[in-house]
């Protein structure tokens, strides 16, 4: 029983990381129709920026995030203005290719600034083991699960109740109609990038606090992609839930079947789910795949 609980608990931790990163993907797709292939790199870049803030000002976790999140949103805005805004009206495929190029640029810039060495980055979170029942956790693991819960609720509330969130859904449903009723689509796109960068920074910092900060952190973007597909490319909340599902399935598969089959297990689930629901567990039926 303890073994099972341990696998589920640690699966929730990695699943929370997948979920947070996947939310960033889904938010941009929902608002712009673009799969941002630089999302993993955004996670990495914002984590490194937070690391510099942490080592410079020796902040504890919450003050650190209070500084990191606005900076990340600013980066999101700048990236959208520089790389995405000029592509408005161009074919989706061209915009996706711009995000691929952006990913390569961000990887290079990160290594150029911070170097190739990996770092221990606690993000001001204590490192003593704590127990919930009989299951041990590092506090950073609990923070990661907690962050997903907060972000999921905040995302749901934002999209459901705020004017900006409702406008975002309107743009996602029908961009032309949204324009006709006076919604500034370009502003919605910019906000989507800013919010996505904010989520990326939370994901990046907490991922690094759990699994070290290294220049291959961007790869978590690709690893989280199955969660986006499973949850539905345009479903922010669905991506978060799908992240948890994939994290747990991977861990249980590895724990009970083993031999490095962790990676395959998530994809087996995705293939099965997509055969039944091609638009994902929570996605809209008319989404376009890239």
């Amino acid at each position: 029983m303890d073994f099972f609980l341990l696998l589920v608990a640690t699966g929730l931790v990695s699943g929370a990381a997948y979920g947070l990163i996947a939310m960033g993907f889904a938010l941009i797709f929902k608002s712009t129709g673009v799969v941002n292939f630089a999302q993993g790199e955004l996670v990495m870049l914002t984590a490194y920026i937070s690391f510099s803030l942490y080592t410079t000002f020796d902040l504890s976790f919450f003050p650190l995030m209070l500084v990191t999140i606005p900076i990340s949103m600013l980066i999101g805005l700048v990236l959208e203005r520089l790389f995405i805004r000029p592509m408005l009206g161009e074919p989706i495929f061209a915009i996706v290719m711009v995000t691929v190029g952006l990913a390569v640029i961000l990887r290079g810039v990160t290594i150029m600034i911070w170097g190739p060495d990996p770092f221990n980055f606690t993000a001001g979170i204590p490192t003593e083991v704590v127990y919930i029942g009989s299951v041990p956790f590092y506090p950073a693991q609990l923070y990661l699960i907690g962050a997903l819960a907060v972000m999921t609720f905040a995302g749901w509330a934002f999209l459901r109740f705020s004017r900006m969130g409702i406008a975002m859904r309107a743009v996602a449903a029908n961009e032309t109609a949204a324009l006709l009723v006076g919604i500034s689509v370009s502003r919605i796109h910019a906000v989507a990038w800013m919010l996505s960068a904010a989520i990326a920074s939370v994901a990046g910092v907490l991922f690094a606090a759990n699994f070290k900060l290294a220049p291959d952190l961007w790869f978590q973007g690709l690893k989280s992609f199955p969660a986006v597909i499973l949850g539905g490319l345009d479903s922010v909340i669905g991506s978060a839930v799908a992240g948890l599902i994939i994290g747990m399935i991977e861990n249980l598969f590895q724990g009970y079947v083993g031999q490095g089959l962790r990676e395959i297990s998530g994809f087996i689930v995705i293939v099965i789910v997509l055969m039944v629901r091609p638009y994902g567990l929570f996605g809209s039926k008319d989404i376009e795949r890239v």
């Binding site: 341990l6 699994f211 861990n251 083993g258 490095g260």
Partner: peptide, 19 residues
């Protein structure tokens, strides 16, 4: 004891170490 394999680039070893 167990002989456990993992893919290059794996970051989360919780299940492996639990084994």
């Amino acid at each position: 004891g167990p002989r456990v394999r993992f893919k290059k680039g794996t970051t989360n070893f919780a299940a492996e170490i639990a084994q």
